[in-house]
Design a protein around this nucleic acid. Structure first.
Lengths: 233, 233
DNA sequence: GAAGAGACTTGATCTGAATCAAGAGGGATA
DNA sequence: TATCCCTCTTGATTCAGATCAAGTCTCTTC
């Protein structure tokens, strides 16, 4: 796996020139975390942020009475904790945890700030990328508050599905991580997740362990209140 | 009300020098919206963002089946829609509505972008301000997903309360807008809001219309899972 | 291949909040 | 002062999702 290529493809840097990315690659470290390890904890000094080369990372918090809330799960090509670098407190406001073997690029705060100071175009791109993430969070709030569990799960499936090459008009989802993680991320208990997934059967959703087949995308999108242009591929 | 002073006091610009703010004041317009008017609608071209001089503004979305989700309510000194200016789509992703008579400063996209290009310190400050807002959204998600209605309402009261000058150890909240707006903002139906507020009585919360008295802040904070350093004043 | 541990499912019951319904109070207006 | 409208409260009922409990299935490990 080529670091330069991966960084270039990430959402944060895809509009940044190769020269800058090559300079960046020299300044930052590659780090590997085993499954189950914590990458950082809430309150740790935030002097770097990360791009994922491989694996899945969950950001979460624990409330006083032990409830876990998953803020987001990031996958290959995505960056996380970049906002923390600008916080007044300069500490991470959440925990980060490796869901499987994870390979990261760690980008030091100092390089990033220096780059923003000397390249206004870069600064504008970063502003745009962070604004996009904010937009996503706003959608999250909307989803959690106005949709039922089956609708939210359907929306998740549509976000992760790909066209089935074997069968025309069919779509497949390979769940990228455990169902229990997905359910926590959507604030649904595992039992409810299981039942809610079953409720999607009438809309052409067929489950085989981690592989899910969607045979009637139109009906599913309609049920989940997803507009057709949000269907990938 | 002095425009320059108000902008200087806003969260977005409080660390920006007076010269820049005075230049800014010349470039932007003051706009007034009557109670109930829409300031902009979802999908409108986003070529400006706003700072509130007076009044309250709610940002909301409407789902296909007519459900309203309030994303945020902003008050005097706060800015909103600044992230929209950097979106790929360059349109507002939400609706903005005047809850009462609202006076705004409209800041044009062009001035803002030009300023970022020529002043890297300014760019860094903006990045910081947007990151802070993002932090708030993350907290919102956590609150909505892990706390009960009475806990969320208690947290809201604590956020808006002030020390009572008449009585030592007491705190007062003057609800800044209608209870129905507060309840929608917290994703609670008005009926449930009313009952949930009543459930806070054992923790020293006494309601008199829009004025609420808190006589046992410690018990309330404990119940709502709020750490003591989050109590204002 | 047996044993154990996780991950997931299924069933029964409980509960917090929504919904449906009806009224109380508090301005504004005529 | 009476009427209308709007916000808020209170009561009864319903429902989605949580909780408690008991499997089943699959993968790992010896």
């Amino acid at each position: 796996m080529n670091i330069v290529e991966t960084i270039k493809k990430s959402t944060l840097f895809h509009s940044v020139d190769m020269q800058t990315i090559e300079a960046l690659t020299k300044e930052c470290h590659k780090k590997t975390f085993a499954k189950g390890r914590d990458i950082f904890a809430m309150g740790d000094k935030a002097d770097a942020f990360f791009i994922i080369l491989e694996g899945w990372v969950k950001l979460y918090r624990i409330s006083k009475d032990g409830e876990e809330a998953i803020i987001h799960v990031f996958g290959p090509g995505e960056s996380f904790a970049e906002a923390a670098v600008f916080n007044d407190t300069k500490t991470y406001p959440v925990n980060a945890h490796a869901l499987d073997e994870v390979i990261l690029v760690e980008i030091p705060r100092s390089f990033f700030i220096q780059k923003i100071e000397e390249d206004s175009q870069f600064a504008l791109r970063m502003l745009g990328a962070i604004a996009a993430r904010q937009h996503y969070l706003v959608q999250q709030i909307e989803q959690v508050t106005t949709r039922t569990a089956p609708q939210r799960i359907g929306a998740f499936l549509i976000r992760f599905c790909k066209k089935n090459k074997q069968a025309e008009g069919e779509w497949v989802v390979h769940l990228p991580y455990d169902k229990s993680v997905i359910s926590t991320r959507m604030n649904i208990k595992p039992e409810t997740f299981s039942r809610a997934l079953a409720k999607l059967e009438p809309f052409g959703v067929h489950v085989e362990n981690k592989k899910i087949l969607i045979t009637d995308m139109e009906a599913l999108a309609e049920f989940c209140d997803i507009s057709p242009n949000e269907i990938p591929c």
